[in-house]
C-alpha cells in the first residue's frame, strides 16, 4: 500500500538502514527464506497477536491462534497477490478470519452467547513495548473511528474487535439487519477516506 509506505518513511527518525518492508520480506518468505520469516515475524507478530487477543479476549487461546496464523503466513506466502493489496493487510485478514472462526466456534461450543455491553467495546490496549510508529498509527485509527457516526462506529467495532456476525450486531444494537449491513459498509468507506486523507495531509 503506497500510503502506508510513505507514512512509514515520514515517521521513522532518520533510519541508519532502510527498515525492512513487510511486502519485501513476504516475497523472500515465499521463496522459503526462513531468516526473512524471522524478520517478518518481528514486524507483524505484535499486530497479529494483539488483534487475535482482542477478538478472543483470552491470552492463552490468542497465543495458540496467533501461532496458527503465523505458520499459515509461512505456508501460504507464495499465494499472496500484491495486485490485490498490501502484505500486512493480507496477513491481518488471515489473522482476523482465524480469530473470528475460533470465537464463533467457542461461542457455539459453550452455547452461551456472550453479551457485551456497547460501552465495553474499547478495552484498554497494552502499553508494553510501545513504539512511536505503533502509537501514531493507533492514534490515527482512533481519531478516524471518532469521525464515524455512533451507529457506524458500533457496527464496525462490534464486528471487527469482537467477532460478532452482522445479525448479532443488529441484535446487540437493536437495529434492523439491512441498516447494520449498510452501516458496516458506509462506516468502512468513511474510515478509508479518513485514513487516506490523514496520511497524505
Amino acid at each position: 500500500m503506497v500510503e502506508e509506505r510513505s507514512a512509514k518513511r515520514r515517521l521513522t527518525a532518520v533510519p541508519s538502514a532502510a527498515p525492512p518492508d513487510v511486502g519485501d520480506l513476504l516475497g523472500s518468505v515465499a521463496r522459503g527464506d526462513e531468516d526473512a520469516f524471522g524478520k517478518l515475524y518481528d514486524l507483524v507478530a505484535p499486530r497479529v497477536f494483539g488483534l487475535v487477543r482482542r477478538v478472543l479476549r483470552d491470552p492463552a487461546q490468542a497465543e495458540e491462534v496467533a501461532q496458527e496464523v503465523l505458520v499459515e503466513v509461512w505456508r501460504m506466502a507464495a499465494r499472496f497477490d500484491p495486485a490485490r493489496g498490501s502484505a500486512s493487510s493480507w496477513i491481518l485478514t488471515i489473522a482476523h478470519r482465524r480469530a473470528v472462526d475460533r470465537v464463533r466456534s467457542e461461542q457455539a461450543a459453550t452455547s452461551r452467547s456472550i453479551v457485551v455491553g456497547v460501552a465495553a467495546v474499547e478495552t484498554p490496549y497494552d502499553a508494553v513495548a510501545d513504539e512511536v510508529q505503533g502509537r501514531l498509527e493507533r492514534q490515527q485509527v482512533r481519531r478516524c473511528l471518532e469521525d464515524l457516526t455512533e451507529l457506524q462506529k458500533q457496527a464496525v467495532t462490534l464486528a471487527y474487535y469482537q467477532g460478532h456476525s452482522y445479525p448479532r450486531v443488529a441484535e446487540l444494537l437493536g437495529a434492523p439487519l439491512p441498516t447494520i449491513k449498510t452501516r458496516m459498509r458506509d462506516g468502512l468507506i468513511r474510515l478509508r477516506d479518513c485514513l487516506t486523507t490523514e496520511v497524505t495531509a
Partner: peptide, 9 residues
C-alpha cells in the same frame, strides 16, 4: 479493516 488492527498492538 486491517488498519483497525493498529489499535490492538
Amino acid at each position: 479493516a486491517a488498519r483497525l488492527a493498529d489499535a490492538t498492538w
